[in-house]
Design a protein around this nucleic acid. Sequence first.
RNA 1: GGGCGAGUGGCGGAAUUGGCAGACGCGCGGGUCUUAGGAGCCCGUGGGGAAACCCGUGUCGGUUCGACCCCGACCUCGCCCACCA
Length: 694
Amino acid sequence: MSDYRPQEIEQKWQARWAATRAFEVTEDRSKPKFYCLEMFAYPSGHAHVGHVRNYMIGDIMARTMRMRGYNVLHPFGWDAFGLPAENAAIQNRTHPETWTLDNIAHMKGQLQRLGISYAWERELATCLPDYYRWNQWLFTRLFQRDLAYRRRSTVNWCASCQTVLANEQVVDGGCWRCGTPVTERELEQWSLRITAYADELLSALDTLEGWPEKVLTMQRNWIGRSEGARVQFPIVPAGGGAPDAGEAIEVFTTRIDTIYGASFVVMAPEHPLVERFAAEAADGSALRAAAARFRAQDRSARMQGDVEKEGVDTGRSVINPFTEQPVPVWVGNFVLSGYGTGAVMGVPGHDQRDFEFARTYGLPIPIVVQPDGRMLTSETLDEAFDGDGSLAASGPYTGLRWDEANRQMTAAAEARGIGHGTVQYRLKDWGVSRQRYWGTPIPIIHCDRCGLVPVPDDQLPVLLPRVTDFTGRGDSPLAHIPEFVNVACPTCGGAARRETDTMDTFVDSSWYFLRFCDAHNDALPFDPAKVAYWGPVDFYSGGVEHAILHLIYSRFFTRVFRDLGFVTGGEPFTRLLTQGMVLRHGAVMSKSKGNVVDPDEMVGQYGADALRLYVMFVAPPEKEVEWTDSGLDGAFRFLGRVWRLADFLIPAVSAAPAVAGLSLDGDERALRHRTHVTIRRVTGDIDPRMHLNT
RNA sequence: GGGCGAGUGGCGGAAUUGGCAGACGCGCGGGUCUUAGGAGCCCGUGGGGAAACCCGUGUCGGUUCGACCCCGACCUCGCCCACCA
């Protein structure tokens, strides 16, 4: 009986897979296709067991489906642009490209020693021009369709990373990467109009039956659709008298039926009318100071509602268009400038925030919706009533159910030209400009005569120049390279300047799964026929931390490619598995915490199969796991037992009758039966059950 | 505050979804082989009991011939979102 020696076994087979290119595939129409994908890797330097776990999940699916006769595409690549490369380069006095490519080479070796069945010929790295030129190609299409546009706006700014962040990248008021509190900054930025697809991105979630409910819920909340109305409250001039035509504060409300109870209006401190009201006042300094103070309040606390509701009276009034009575205008720290119109009508009887605000400042609390079976009064109300009921003290609408009143009053506002029904999304357009070096140059030329001119296809890619000074200074390092910046306008030939910002790296990862279908196409981002064969991804696995960002951007980009005629259908991923993290000593593994488990060491000691078996066996794939060394010992011993058992059985099985079923005795029949029961069970545990730990 | 999910041995977890609770692994105990064993192999291992047997899936109720599984209430934990008008 021979011992189990994993290193010999694994090296032998890994060499054979490489020599025979065992996992390369073409569009073979005689077989059903299966596109199996794990989220590609950021080449940080070393694979850790968290990576191993994710790639094992995919490898099990890929190998199982191959054995079941599917034509399986299982590619891998590198999300290779991004800030860590730049920071590491500054620290180690190297270049981001050198650092990145070295890391890729090292990690690729690690993954190969794990025996994952990748089609390595399709490997891609987003930092290489043959990939990012298609980011640029796509960007020009977005620009031509008005889906990429420039916008001067208040942006989220990370002082540590010296760059702008998308809303999705602000976590608890801090930078998603480094946690530094995010501040606001006025910048001219490129944005992608993801909101044009908001309705579709939301409604199509209902079709994603292969996605975890948790992720669907998170995306629904993130898109945040609410139906309501915008209503104009005409502004009473500073000196009093009738409002001038067209002068109004517009508010957004989901409860226009409560408008008879709107006893004040509150604007966000960032609202443009704040400055105007201050300028028109005899002494606007107190108003200015208060608004400035609200703006400066800690952004994260303000966003999380941890700050006491505070406000200041502007001294001005607007006319409630339904009661036709004047109501005071306040500035409040709880009103968000980025949502709706940046101003709200205060209905303290039926909105808890307005209630608290009114209590604090002694504003009237009218009751205009009464619940069934009891009668609320302003005097006894101790919290806002926002339940079902019928309208009270609401002119001609009194007595109507609140939802019916909502419909009628929206229609009335439209008929009178003072408002309209609308759908408001929480989702905002995606700011993609980054003032950093290590990313895709935005392929736009600024010409004084022609305006914004996209770089023509035949001049793509706009190569990222090799600079050596990319210290963060608040503007793009590319802006300091005259050879890069100064360029002839493609339209008029005159002197013009290149855009010097680079793209958010989430652009890179929003379509790489399409590129894998045709990874080396140098005429198009991919051949639509190949994507028609392979797409959509049948099984996608990765960390739940991408439940919003990456997965919503990818759904957006897939629809853009659809509208460009390159893809049919809009959903990129049919089935999604979000795997849990691997912890050690209760914490995520990281170099700084010193709790990283190096897969190379484990492979050297126990072999890749024991490591693979252990990381799958220890818990269901969706769950977090706590790493234990003794569990890996157990997996190794288990494989040793399997080896010895097979070593003992194979001679006996080889001597058995060649024609199955003809002369099996009782034990043989029982064994055969057991074999097939096991095959059935194991198959079902992998697909569809995804119980990879059994 | 809202949403989603989970509570099963000393531990990680099974139970193919209403039909033998605790598969498999870790740990622990005993044995065997051995100069030695921290390798391998064998036996045991939810609790109580000498045994027959009894009790056991967070708590309390309900449905059912039958409940870890379904329903209601509560408790605890985890994750996500959160002043979104």
